[in-house]
Design a protein around this nucleic acid. Structure first.
Lengths: 337, 337
DNA sequence: GAGGGTCTTGTTATCGCTAACAATGACCGT
DNA sequence: ACGGTCATTGTTAGCGATAACAAGACCCTC
């Protein structure tokens, strides 16, 4: 980095030094085929000598597209979205794209639409929406066609490209695991019902119970927080017939563990618990938590690949990729007493 | 959002509709004083009618500055950095700035320098660096002057503007709290030593012990993970003289609790534990964790304010703001048995 | 009423790049 | 040797905004 840089060098500076026209420099930069090897090298040398770096704004202006990918996500530290965000940044950086984050406070239609528009102002090359709720999908309906778009864990009914974690499969695996351990049935603490993730986990749980001919206990509604898991746990702890609980995420499960511990119900001896997400701390809960691990890296990579395909070729048809989660067995599951 | 938008309207389109020159439209947009009220209204109406939104790239090209703030942070889901990131996005959006995130895999000099350069390519209006390690500060030394810059939890020795959480004060408060409960001394599990946060927490812990005339036990080194806390805990659990531990973050503390639990050492009856960060789950650990809460929102707000001041007036002298953390008392501390 | 200011508006140049087209020369086949 | 293709390079014209300057209208003062 040049310390005294009064003005950073522009393409014409490079051209002058290399003894070519600025257009030739542009061609080298964009890997156009018809440039003599010798010229290419001379230009490259000049670029290196001046420490030239192209001005993204100018390029964006003329092409109408930037090397910027916009991500719309909820402004939160929820583990899932935060992990996805990090994974996306990583993958995008490797592909030479910058990432602009438009976080929204709430996932309602207006917030999402506003964030999308702000990104469109910046002429983003593509948009990733991590907002697995119906209102977000509604907001996306109004989007101008032609902007590459990938939604994460969105509604499969919609027509755009999307990447989803197979939430239902994860929930089924968790529920079956508990049934296989000998439990007569499995209770479920759900996430907020407007989240598709939550809805599908409920669905998978129900499906596994039906499939096994097990009774379906009432659904316990909660949000994603440990506090809500704790509240649910205080209720369940007083019900001796509850011997197995599948929580919609690990934080809820933590709250559950705490509630059971307070009420003297031992996990897994008296009650078995399974979570979802495999947060890094899950292995250190008391007891270590059996949970379902979605691969956020795989989701981000797939999402980015689909997005880049659309950016490269706008005619790419809508596509979808489903990522299978895996069950991570730890110590929070045992046969009923 | 216009669905059929073949090309989004430009300034000249607005000008034509309003019957003025494009320059007048520009003046209205930028709140220049010398525009007749009547003209202003006409232009505003035309803008609204066309749904015109200025092209950021064009503006960035001519002004050399964008309405973009770059954030350099480690690509991780560590609670602190992730929270800061979220808080910054929030604050920046409110100020009308977009946020571009350049995450880095590692915090070494090259990675940081690369991320900074990528942001500079985009002509960011300002830069926030959340990388509280020495190598990051070194990388920043080479930065061209004139780019507004704020570092978070950086080295106070450096000359640029920075916002820090008073880590030492937080550590002192935690240590004093344990001493006040009657413990003869307090052990400390530290974060990675190259992080300033970790170093200051060590310093605060030492200072509090000295101040009280307590013996300073050997420092237990760890990283920020629950796993490292667990490893440290397995060692400490076998040492009966250990009755109070201050962990450098909540995740480590979780690992500690787990290790103590496995070894039959009850918290807080046999050992007291304090963490740092106040992650949302801390209240649901077993037992609920007493911890130190830094206000990430306050840090982000202060950081953004300082940055905006520099953007508005480049002559603003370097400044620094220190945010005081607070102790959150829960159930993991008790007098020694 | 002439000179000088202020307010308001328009004209032109420019930022740094890419797209489209033009120009040059080499090579080819007949 | 001559038109035609191809590879290579240059020239020109924008993209959509702001900046700098110019110009006209209006007001004031002496």
């Amino acid at each position: 980095m040049d310390v005294h840089a009064a003005r950073s060098p522009a393409m014409t500076d490079v051209a002058r030094l290399a003894g070519v026209s600025h257009q030739t420099v542009s061609r080298v930069l964009n890997d156009h085929p018809n440039v003599r090897e010798q010229t290419r090298l001379r230009v490259r040398a000049a670029i290196a000598e001046l420490g030239y770096r192209p001005n993204r704004a100018a390029r964006a202006l003329v092409t109408g597209r930037s090397q910027l990918i916009g991500i719309v996500a909820q402004n939160s530290t929820l583990y899932g979205p935060a992990s996805l965000l990090a994974a996306f940044e990583q993958a995008a950086a490797e592909a030479g794209f910058a990432v602009s984050v438009g976080s929204v406070g709430r996932l309602d239609r207006e917030s999402i639409a506003g964030a999308v528009e702000r990104h469109l102002d910046q002429r983003v090359a593509g948009l990733v929406v991590i907002a697995p709720v119906k209102s977000a999908d509604d907001a996306l309906e109004g989007m101008p066609a032609g902007v590459p778009l990938v939604t994460i864990d969105g509604d499969p009914q919609r027509s755009h490209t999307l990447v989803t974690v197979d939430q239902a499969a994860g929930a089924r695996a968790a529920t079956r695991h508990l049934l296989a351990a000998g439990h007569r049935t499995v209770w479920h603490i759900s996430g907020p019902p407007e989240w598709y993730d939550a809805a599908w986990r409920i669905e998978g749980w129900r499906a596994a119970l039906h499939e096994a001919g097990a009774e379906v206990p009432p659904l316990v509604n909660a949000d994603w927080s440990a506090a809500s898991g704790y509240d649910a746990g205080r209720m369940l702890a007083r019900m001796p017939e509850v011997t197995a609980v599948f929580a919609a995420n690990d934080h809820q499960a933590l709250g559950l563990l705490r509630a059971f511990s307070e009420h003297g119900r031992r996990v897994p001896h008296d009650v078995s618990v399974i979570g979802f997400d495999d947060v890094p701390e899950a292995a250190f809960f008391i007891p270590p938590l059996t949970t379902v691990r979605p691969s956020f890296d795989a989701v981000a990579q797939a999402g980015l690949d689909l997005l880049l395909a659309q950016i490269t070729d706008p005619a790419t048809p809508p596509n979808r990729v489903v990522i299978a989660p895996s069950l991570v067995e730890r110590a929070s599951v045992a046969p009923p007493a």
